[in-house]
Every structure is written in C-alpha cells, then in structure tokens.
C-alpha cells in the first residue's frame, strides 16, 4: 500500500446508517427465537432418562448447527477472496468468523452445563469436545490475527488461509462421534428422537439461523464502516506526509 487509496464510493457513511431492513430481520429473529423456545420448552414432555434437562437440547444443538453454517460462510468467502481479491468477501468472512466463534463458545458452555448433571462432568477430553475446543481456538486465533495485521491486503490473504484451515476442522468435529469412540453420543435423528422433541428442535434451529444471519449482516455493516475509517486514516496520513 504505497499510494493513496481512492475511497470506495458505494458505501459512504450516510448509506451505511440506513439499516431499517436489517433491523426488521433482527425483530423477526428475536420473535422467532422466543416463539421457538416457548414451543420447545412448553410442548415437549420430560425425557425418560434425563427429565427436563432435555430442554438444553433446544439451545445447545441450534448453536452448534449454526456455528457450522457460519464457518461454511467463512470458507466460501475466503475462497472467493483468494480467487477474486475483492474486499467485501474478506469482510464477510471476518463477520461470519466472529459470529461463528461466539456460537462455538456458546455450544461449549451450554454443552458443559448439560454435561455436568447428565454425564457427571463439566468437561472431559473426549474427541468431540476436544475437536470443538480446537475449532474455537483456531477462530480466536483468526480474529487475533486480523487485529494484529495492519496492511489490509496482507490481513485479508492471511486470514483467508487461516479461515479455510479452520473451516476444514468443521467436518472433523461433525464426524468425530462417528469416526472415534467418544463419550458424546452420535448425532440423533428423527428415528432416535420422539416427534414431540423434533418439532421444537427444528423450530429453534431455524430461529437461531435467523439470529445468525442478522448478526452476520450487522457485523458486516460494522466491518464496512471500520474499513472506511481505516482508509480515511491512511489517506489522511499520506496527505499529511505529502504536505510536510
């Protein structure tokens, strides 16, 4: 970055401030989440083995599913960036990575809360738990990397590589319970789960997906504004140097 960068005209701050459609999505997502939680908690009977502890399913599992979706977005956007070199793909990958990281942390925390009364332990080094922890750490590293690298091109390239590598861990996390002998049970399916629970789980999966999309769009907007501010600062610094 040796010369002044022309500012992108497609996202002036005024246009970024107009967020009405996104806020509508946020409201819909919130209502869907409240509705799905009520549906799940109120309509499903206590489980034969674990009683009402089964209700943790309605937050733990949607968080896990949607963290996978977020990292899938990271993978696609990272590939697109490396292919086409467009800044928007980098910023969208970063936004999805932020939200995916939060959802993975949530998955681990809720799983831990579920594990203590059912398994008897908060944590154990089971392949599913360990691979999920590795996934979280890779994306914490991804976010740290982004904040350490000042050159925008280099930041985008390096984080695209790390983002791809991190997303590669998702199928490993998913398959860990099939490939290896674990404490965590294998994936449930409608044949192992009574319909009373399936309805609530699916509803919450969709509601959390809406929340995920809302969060990513919000973070993407913020990332655009941050990038714009960065470019303004760079230009100001370069102009100041030229005048001196």
């Amino acid at each position: 970055m040796s010369h002044a960068v022309p500012l992108e005209t497609e996202s002036p701050p005024a246009a970024v401030g107009v967020t009405r459609p996104i806020e509508w999505l946020g409201l819909v997502a919130l209502l869907a989440l409240v509705g799905a939680q009520l549906l799940g908690v109120l309509t499903s009977p206590p489980d034969r083995d674990m009683g009402h502890l089964q209700k943790i399913m309605y937050v733990h599992v949607p968080a896990a599913w949607n963290s996978f979706i977020a990292f899938f977005v990271v993978a696609i956007c990272s590939l697109l960036y490396l292919w086409k070199g467009q800044e928007r793909h980098d910023l969208l990958a970063a936004s999805a990575a932020e939200v995916g990281t939060v959802f993975t942390a949530l998955t681990l925390a809720l799983g831990s809360i579920w594990g203590r009364p059912t398994w008897g332990v908060w944590w154990t080094w089971d392949p599913r738990l360990t691979s999920t922890a590795v996934l979280l750490l890779i994306f914490v590293g991804y976010l740290a990397l982004r904040s350490f690298v000042e050159d925008a091109d280099r930041r985008a390239q390096w984080s695209a590589a790390v983002g791809l590598l991190g997303a590669l861990n998702v199928p490993i996390v998913y398959m860990s319970v099939k490939w290896w002998r674990t404490l965590h049970q294998m994936q449930s399916s409608p044949s192992t789960v009574d319909p009373e629970y399936v309805v609530g789980l699916r509803a919450n999966g969709i509601a959390v997906l809406l929340v995920l999309v809302y969060f990513i769009m919000k973070r993407y907007r913020a990332a655009r504004v941050e990038r714009l501010a960065e470019q303004l600062e760079e230009r100001a610094a370069l102009e100041g140097r030229d005048h001196a």
């Binding site: 499903s44 206590p46 034969r48 398994w119 008897g120 192992t192 789960v193 009574d194």
Partner: peptide, 24 residues
Amino acid sequence: TGLMVKHSNEYRKPEHGDRPQEMY
C-alpha cells in the same frame, strides 16, 4: 477415580405410567 454416564442419542417421552420427575 471418576465415573461418567454415557447417554445414547435417543430422546423418548415417558412410557405410559412412567413419571420422569419421580424417577429422577
């Protein structure tokens, strides 16, 4: 030195006559 319960991937409503809260 440590005992963990391994749950299956099944979630079933109580059979007729079961009272999960009391079982629990």
